[in-house]
Design a binder for these strands. Structure first.
Length: 571
RNA sequence: CGGGCCGUAGCGCAGCUUGGUAGCGCGCUUGACUGGGGGUCAAGAGGUCGCGGGUUCGAAUCCCGCCGGCCCGACCA
């Protein structure tokens, strides 16, 4: 392609509304333009990258036996009602009505429709199947942000596995796990596979693929020593054994005027204790039940863990009014000792603790000498707290690291949630109908694009890996008016085209500096610079974007050298 | 959905406090010089000041309403 006739609108300045590096660079480089909040147009450069990422996804899916489909994005609301998600999901699902007034949903994901198609499977002998498509998804995100990282309209590679039993699902899941690792590696980064919560997707196991990045919004805990990694919604950790008094002691009420927070109580002169000796009492509503969620004073609740373990579709913090009605005191003086009208759920870290301090359910008073096992009627002990950096890995006890990541892929063991609801059954060996065991597996294509930029850029711009670069090489013509220079450049360009390299020739009438800056901004992995001085000496400059390494190459060998470098890196 | 900030030329911004009919840099067009890291000079083009209403002789500027965007939080298969 010729730069002079291409639409590559690069910008000198960062767009004012961009925060994330990938957002700034993809806009400045002329890859994307915003249309509205969370909706972006892909320009030619952006589309080229997207197509390459899709190509790798397709390749990896076919490697594990995937068959490609293309399912609609306009779905009958009826179908989503049958799976239950019409009511479960809320505002994130785009809904509309057609001219006859029928409910229609815009695809957030395609479990329902793939399951309907799978309804034509008749026999266990037809299983397993792995089906996929690469299709637009629409989600009315509450807060689109960070450019192309979190949007309302995007492309997803999603696949669905259909198996006769859990063992089959396990195998399909493993195949995807490996395919995803290869996929992200080919896109240019090592994704961290983490245990995750399945959320409203249903199913009992899910793994997310993450890229460590400040631009991300998911926190994960990861152990460098043994490889354990989990989303903070799910991660657990070990703590040093507490040093509690031997004897249980007796409960004493004491006055704590003006003490409303854990830290105020820790600093309270007349009976205050450190946060780790306090019991934090949070009040939640789940359906018609009031839950007391008890944690150590210095710990934070991982709300998703609570949600996952109470089997409610929704839990929310109780209002101050509800709290007062249930416990007779305001936040700051709450506790679970002697409370019978609420369900107390206690974090594992409090099990067996003695000599603790907690609220007395009377404003301005606390209790000391509390023995958790003796004094609190716990419905259950569960892991509810959020892991902190430096705590012990649950597998090997080495210190665990907590950091921010971008979620680029997510795979789920769905089980029979959708097949049972939508009647996708096969006959087993005995001739009895059994629901198909399903898995679903997604990769965000544009998000992957942005993630690569987050992982691979410098002050000058993007540095694409060869596999997904919009062009693999650029021939920069320093002075197109100089006939010798321009003929030399054109020859090299033609040779690269003939060699099957995606090559761009910068034949614009621009200053050299402008061309260099632009080539670096849009991130072309290799550059051949053809200028009058070099041509005079029979050489051109060959430069690698990622480290700036450059050398002179004979004109006759230039195309070959570049082609070899590119081909060596393609995978 | 709560809190904060912002909509003026393609991009980045000033002007608004104290009303008088819009300006700067970059980019763009034409010409000349220049040609290995965003060059110089000259001449130009380009704006319903987000939208609607109100106040006023007069509104980018003041008032009311709406729309849109960004950030923080809640949310997120």
């Amino acid at each position: 392609m010729r730069w002079s006739t291409s639409f590559i609108p690069t910008l000198r300045d960062d767009p004012a509304d961009a925060e994330a590096v990938s957002h700034k660079l993809l806009v400045r480089g002329g890859f994307v333009r915003q249309l509205m909040a969370g909706v972006y147009s892909l320009l030619p450069l952006g589309l080229r990258v997207k197509a390459k990422i899709e190509g790798i996804a397709r390749d990896e899916m076919k490697r594990i036996g995937g068959q490609e489909f293309l399912l609609p994005i306009l779905h009958p609301g009826e179908l989503w009602k049958r799976s239950g998600r019409w009511d479960q999901i809320g505002d994130e699902l785009f809904r509309l009505q057609d001219r006859r007034g029928s409910d229609v949903a815009l695809a957030m994901t395609h479990e329902e429709v793939f399951t309907v198609v799978a309804g034509e499977l008749r026999s266990y002998k037809q299983l397993p199947q792995v089906w996929f498509h690469i299709q637009t998804k629409l989600r009315d995100e509450a807060r689109p942000k960070s450019g192309i990282l979190r949007v309302r309209e995007f492309t997803m590679k999603d696949s669905y596995s259909f198996d006769r039993d859990d063992a089959g699902l396990d195998a399909a899941f493993d195949n995807h796990l490996n395919a995803y690792r290869r996929f992200f590696r080919r896109c240019g980064f090592e994704a961290i596979a983490v245990e995750a919560s399945s959320g409203v997707m249903g199913g009992n196991q899910s793994v997310e693929f993450m890229l460590a990045s400040e631009a991300g919004e998911d926190w994960i805990a990861s152990c460098a020593a043994c490889g354990y990694a989990a989303n903070l919604e799910k991660a657990s950790s070990t703590l040093p054994a507490p040093e509690d008094p031997e004897s249980a002691g007796v409960i004493e009420k004491f006055a704590t005027p003006d003490v409303h927070t854990i830290s105020e109580l820790a600093n309270f002169a007349d009976g205050g204790v450190p946060a780790e000796r306090q019991i934090k009492t949070l009040v939640y509503r789940a359906g018609n039940e009031t839950l007391l969620v008890l944690l150590r004073g210095d710990h934070t609740l991982a709300e998703q863990k609570l949600l996952d373990s109470v089997e409610a579709t929704e839990v929310r913090p109780a209002s101050e009014k509800e709290i007062r009605a249930a416990l007779g005191a305001s936040p700051g003086s709450l506790g679970a000792v002697g409370v019978t009208n609420c369900i107390a759920i206690v974090d594992e870290a409090l099990r067996g603790r003695r000599g603790m301090v907690t609220g007395a359910n009377e404003d301005g008073y606390h209790l000391r000498g509390v023995d958790v096992d003796r004094d609190i009627e716990a419905r259950a002990f569960m892991d509810l707290r959020e892991v902190s950096d430096g705590e012990g890995c649950p597998v090997c006890e080495a210190p665990i690291a907590v950091f921010k990541t971008i979620e680029v892929g997510h795979i789920f063991k769905l089980g029979t949630k959708y097949s049972a609801a939508l009647g996708a059954k096969v006959l087993d060996e005995n001739g009895s109908p059994v629901p198909i065991v399903m898995g679903s597996y997604g990769i965000g294509i544009e998000r992957t694009m942005a993630a690569v930029v987050e992982a691979s850029h410098d002050e000058a711009g993007i540095s694409w890996p060869v596999n997904i670069a919009p062009f693999e090489a650029v021939v920069t013509v320093l002075n197109p008016k100089d006939v010798k220079v321009s003929e030399t450049a054109e020859h090299i360009y033609e040779d690269l085209v003939a060699a099957g390299i995606d090559v761009l020739i910068d034949d614009r009438h621009e200053r050299p500096g402008v061309k260099f800056k632009d080539a670096e901004l849009i991130g072309i992995p290799y550059r051949i610079t053809v200028g009058p001085k070099g041509v005079e000496n029979g050489v051109v400059e060959f430069m690698r974007r990622r480290d700036g390494e450059s050398r002179e190459v004979e004109i006759a060998r230039a195309a070959e050298t570049a082609a070899e470098a590119v081909l060596e890196e393609r995978s």
